[in-house]
Design a protein around this nucleic acid. Structure first.
Lengths: 192, 192
DNA sequence: ACTATAATATACCGAAGAGTACAGAAAAGT
DNA sequence: ACTTTTCTGTACTCTTCGGTATATTATAGT
């Protein structure tokens, strides 16, 4: 009973994700959000509660999508090391205008220190990605492609830190060749 | 002739740096700034021009200080590799409440993509730090401590990316031991 | 068709945002 | 001492912020 929603919640959330992703929390105004989402202000509050909650939901939606994409991307690698190399490559912008970076890195810098809940959301996501990567590290070790010096989880954590660094570097370094070289250098730490 | 300034410009700038450093550009209001700087609003505009210019000045002041500190820190290392290890350690918070991270990393994420001038300021600073690090890489290579596979500048650039990643990771990872392990793993990429 | 219910749209709220006009206060030159 | 110049402090501007009250519209069950 009652009137039905004139918009798809997940579509609106996806649009909100885009806005927060490349403007950040503070710089994204409600007008920016409602305009991009194509809904009115009260609809936003009725559906998502507040700007802060919308931000959290948007971040979580982004993370879920990123993990799904990552799983697929890793599976496509010819070898475990190739999979990990592909992972690192996702931090390298191929066109000039996909300079949004990684929403999780942005959130880590802008909001993690102030907002405990966001910090938790990020920690959980990173832990899941780490576990995902660790499987490939482990497979690489079994195949003799990767050194046995580190545990798979430690190596995976290191790769996470490395890709974070690539995302930061990409903000001021346009040349993909430089970024690729740095990724390759970082990856070499895992080779036997 | 005329009235003399009631405050020291560099002191006020240092205070402004603190505010921007741990709040970011958007989240730092003029009230935050003037209160912390201990000056009135018109004095701020008269001396620094605008919030954006103050931000740029604050960032540059931070960079100059950071480079001076870095130069000293690197010189204190027992060996070139030890110096580089100390460099990476600066990204690891020793107390619970120095979670401001690195102003340059914050600026890279929050403002570099929107503001061309800030991007330039960051690029120049990072280039200088890279050059500084490259000297120690070179010395390490001469001493046989560091692999000859990479050019000093490439290796230095990689270290820069690595420390960026450490700064991001530190936002959601409290344990210094984990960060140290990741730094060590990253550093191992340069060893022979 | 009627009614209860839920979503929409318009218009608004007080608060806080960045930036400034203007008058008073202090220092330097004469 | 007086004038000129520069800085300071109060109070203001206009705009935009996040969030909401209210009235209207559309749907589902009866």
């Amino acid at each position: 009973m009652g009137r039905v929603k004139q918009f798809k919640v997940e579509d609106a959330l996806a649009k909100a994700t885009d806005v927060f992703w490349h403007k950040g929390f503070e710089a994204a105004s409600l007008s920016d959000l409602t305009e991009e989402m194509g809904i009115q202000r009260p609809s936003l509050y009725d559906t998502f509660g507040s700007k802060a909650e919308l931000y959290r939901d948007a971040l979580m939606a982004y993370q879920a999508g990123a993990r799904a994409q990552l799983e697929q991307l890793l599976a496509e690698g010819a070898t475990p090391v190739d999979s990990l190399r592909r992972f690192l490559s996702t931090a390298i912008p191929n066109s000039v205008n996909d300079r949004k970076g990684c929403f999780c890195v942005n959130a880590s810098i802008e909001t993690a220190s102030h907002e405990a809940e966001i910090q938790e959301v990020l920690q959980k996501h990173f832990a899941q990605v780490q576990t995902l990567l660790a499987r490939y590290v482990s497979a690489g070790q079994a195949a003799g492609e990767i050194s046995l010096d580190l545990s798979p989880m430690d190596a995976a954590g290191y790769l996470l830190t490395l890709i974070h660094g690539l995302h930061v570097t990409a903000r001021t370094t346009a040349d993909p060749a430089i970024l690729t070289a740095r990724a390759e250098c970082g990856l070499s730490a895992l080779l036997p």
